[in-house]
């Protein structure tokens, strides 16, 4: 009897829980269709309460998925040439949206994916849609607005306007190195090598990505060679 009564009380405690001050409803289930590692991986990590870790795993998968294209970005950036690309990687937006559904605060994923879509792959519509989803989940995140503006201006060919909107975001901890390198590239195209060099030095100081660090080193070497040749009579 006591045990049965205790079980009933347990149900009562669970029913009363939403009335406790500070109770926040749990996050809704993630978008089930966007499980790059399979439903069993998703189910296992969710059942262990490792939702954020699952978002990290999906982020790693996104980085691996887009990894080769990033290599092209890095090489182009160090040679000051444009990256061309309009197609491929059809899952980027869906994967990033899936990460966002797991962890609405994972701004890096949104900025990374929207940056790739908007600046490299020539798919501004998908990029802006993703950024709008990010804003819906995290309305206070001003970086999303900045990216929407920058992508729009890039689409219209306004490099100066775009880099002006990106500049304040570059020092934020969630700014992907890819975006920093794109901003540096835009500064180079605008003839502002000093600002580009400052960004590359920042990448060297703060980035954990060895590929981007190497790229920044090469770009700085190139910039300093260019500066020396300009200074010779």
């Amino acid at each position: 009897m006591i045990s049965a009564a205790a079980l009933v009380l347990i149900a009562g405690v669970n029913a009363f829980l939403p009335r406790l001050p500070g109770f926040v409803p749990p996050l809704p289930p993630p978008s089930l269709g966007a499980a790059p590692g399979g439903a069993s991986e998703e189910a296992l990590l969710l059942s262990l309460g490792l939702r954020r870790l699952l978002a990290d795993v999906w982020m790693v998968r996104l980085l691996l998925y887009y990894g080769a294209a990033e290599e092209a970005v890095r090489s182009a950036a160090s040679e000051s040439s444009e990256v061309s690309g309009s197609g491929g990687y059809p899952e980027i937006a869906a994967r990033a949206a899936g990460i966002l559904s797991l962890d609405p605060s994972f701004s890096y994923a949104v900025l990374y994916a929207s940056g790739a879509l908007g600046f490299n792959l020539g798919r501004p519509g998908e990029a802006i849609e993703l950024l709008r989803r990010g804003l819906a989940a995290d309305p206070g995140n001003w970086r999303y607005r900045a990216y929407i503006g920058a992508i729009g201006l890039t689409k219209n060919g306004d490099r100066r306007g775009a880099v002006g909107l990106l500049a304040p975001t570059l020092d934020m901890p969630d700014c992907p190195a890819m975006i920093k390198s794109i901003a540096a590239f835009l500064y180079i195209k605008l003839g502002e090598s000093a600002k580009a060099a400052a960004i590359y030095r920042k990448i060297l100081e703060t980035s954990h990505d060895p590929g981007y660090r190497e790229m920044a080193r090469r770009a700085l070497a190139r910039l300093s060679r260019g500066a020396r040749s300009r200074s010779r009579p």
Binding site: L50, L53, A55, D56, M59, L63, H208, D209
Partner: peptide, 18 residues
């Protein structure tokens, strides 16, 4: 977590807490 590149510390944080 090094696979997470720039989000390495976040991944390490989440993995470690888990």
């Amino acid at each position: 977590s090094a696979l997470a590149a720039e989000e390495e510390t976040r991944a390490l944080l989440d993995l470690g807490l888990g």
